[in-house]
Simulated scan of single mutants.
Amino acid sequence: MKSSVIFLILSSVVYAEIKVLHIDLYTNGCSDSDGVNMYGLDGEEKWYADFNKQKGVEPLPPFADPLTYPGGYEQAVANQQICKQNLATSIKANKNPEEKIVPPHSSIYPRDDVVLGVKNTLICHVSGFHPAPVRVRWTRNNQIVTEGVRMSTPYPNQDFSHNQFSSLTFTPEEGDIYSCTVEHQGLSEPLTRIWEPEVTQPSVGPAVFCGVGLTLGLLGVATGTFFLIKGNECN
């Protein structure tokens, strides 16, 4: 699969000295079967075109100020057509060069500290792969999960490899086992990571020591009182 990606990086200038405060990124990429059109800031997505659902998406948390891109999806569709035309011309001009394929790495972790029975988000981070994209599947106790799943667009690194995130909204319960499985043309077989809630049992050590100490203290008081009374009787 051949891909074509265009990058635009903007930086800020402060006090007549060039300092990169933020990186504003625009990505338009295409292949024979896939496409990506995304605006990002400092490694986070601000807006992307979902070509399957035929709409633009603002993947911001609820507390963030909403962003709007009027006409953004229509422009993304037009840019995809231009990208595919440029891709075909580039492949022909370069005599269909072989594309470098780099397999991904992955990790799985919860977004927040895990509390049983409290809603959380599992994140499957896929990194260092080329070309984009990857496919990610989630399971809970060996059953495929699709509800509550979100997939980010591929985010380019400086070395032209990519990062991509998949997240699963879930409520952790004791005994549950979750997995994320990554598929990519650079892998000889799917890459699977397993996660299960760690249940921390309350420590009984301090309570036991305090109980033993209190018991010994009371015995000491009783013994001292006994000898004090006996001593007074002898006098």
Results as ranks from 00 to 15, higher is better:
221 V>L: 15
190 P>A: 02
115 V>L: 09
53 K>M: 08
74 E>R: 13
109 Y>N: 07
229 I>R: 09
196 E>F: 06
142 N>A: 14
195 W>T: 04
43 G>W: 07
73 Y>Q: 02
163 N>G: 03
31 S>G: 15
111 R>C: 05
224 G>M: 10
100 K>N: 11
71 G>C: 09
83 C>M: 04
209 F>L: 15
144 I>C: 04
139 T>P: 04
199 V>I: 15
46 K>I: 10
193 R>P: 00
161 S>Q: 11
139 T>D: 12
116 L>W: 03
70 P>A: 02
179 S>P: 00
49 A>Q: 05
89 T>D: 14
106 S>E: 01
175 G>S: 07
199 V>E: 10
11 S>N: 13
214 L>K: 06
195 W>Y: 15
234 C>R: 15
86 N>K: 13
225 T>Y: 11
169 T>K: 11
63 F>A: 11
205 G>S: 09
5 V>W: 08
122 L>G: 02
128 G>Y: 03
184 H>F: 01
120 N>P: 06
80 Q>H: 10
232 N>D: 10
228 L>D: 04
14 V>I: 11
26 Y>I: 13
98 E>G: 08
144 I>L: 15
198 E>H: 12
186 G>F: 02
162 H>C: 05
38 M>I: 06
99 E>L: 13
41 L>P: 00
184 H>P: 00
138 W>M: 08
219 L>R: 07
98 E>A: 14
229 I>G: 01
46 K>H: 08
60 L>Q: 01
28 N>V: 14
58 E>Q: 12
202 P>L: 08
202 P>M: 09
176 D>G: 06
47 W>N: 03
208 V>H: 05
75 Q>M: 10
137 R>A: 12
130 H>R: 14
14 V>T: 11
183 E>R: 02
46 K>V: 09
28 N>W: 03
151 M>G: 02
16 A>H: 11
222 A>T: 09
58 E>C: 11
164 Q>E: 14
59 P>G: 03
125 H>N: 13
115 V>S: 11
76 A>I: 03
57 V>T: 00
106 S>G: 10
149 V>I: 15
3 S>N: 13
182 V>K: 01
182 V>F: 03
31 S>W: 02
113 D>C: 07
162 H>T: 03
206 P>K: 09
202 P>H: 09
64 A>N: 08
97 P>T: 09
227 F>P: 01
38 M>P: 00
24 D>F: 06
217 G>I: 06
34 D>P: 01
94 N>W: 05
114 V>R: 00
19 K>E: 07
210 C>T: 12
176 D>S: 13
154 P>T: 02
202 P>I: 09
192 T>G: 04
233 E>I: 15
47 W>E: 05
25 L>P: 00
17 E>Q: 12
189 E>L: 10
118 V>C: 02
219 L>S: 12
20 V>H: 10
103 P>G: 03
218 L>Q: 08
130 H>G: 05
77 V>W: 01
60 L>T: 01
131 P>T: 04
95 K>N: 13
11 S>P: 05
35 G>D: 03
226 F>Y: 13
16 A>S: 14
141 N>E: 08
210 C>S: 13
57 V>E: 00
112 D>E: 12
148 G>K: 04
6 I>Q: 14
82 I>A: 11
24 D>L: 10
154 P>L: 01
